[in-house]
Amino acid sequence: MATVIIPTPLRKFTGNSSRVTIKANKVSDVVQELTTNFPDLRKHVINSDGKIASFINVFVDNDDIRSLNHEQTEVRENSTISIIPAIAGGMC
């Protein structure tokens, strides 16, 4: 089972769990399973097309999936998937 690290701001949508284990072969399966198990996560992780939202970054182990195969990136049994919210702001 792959391990998904839930970022602190989204833990209230996973019953305060910081880690969730999911059986999946690719990142899109992980996201699908995660948002099925925790429906309140959906609007914080995926967009209206069902794709990973632009303001969410996903790492498999230490690599951004944008530098790999995006949502089709392979997930292995011992993979760690980190969901990372975009942190930004400023005066304008």
Binding site: T8, P9, I87, G89, M91
Partner: peptide, 27 residues
């Protein structure tokens, strides 16, 4: 991890529209 700080040089310490749009739950 309780939150994020940032400075507003020569501006008040109130959130901009961008700050509001980008704010995460909990933090």
């Amino acid at each position: 991890l309780l939150g994020v700080y940032h400075s507003h040089p020569n501006h008040p310490a109130v959130p901009s529209e961008y700050d509001k749009k980008a704010a995460q739950p909990y933090f």
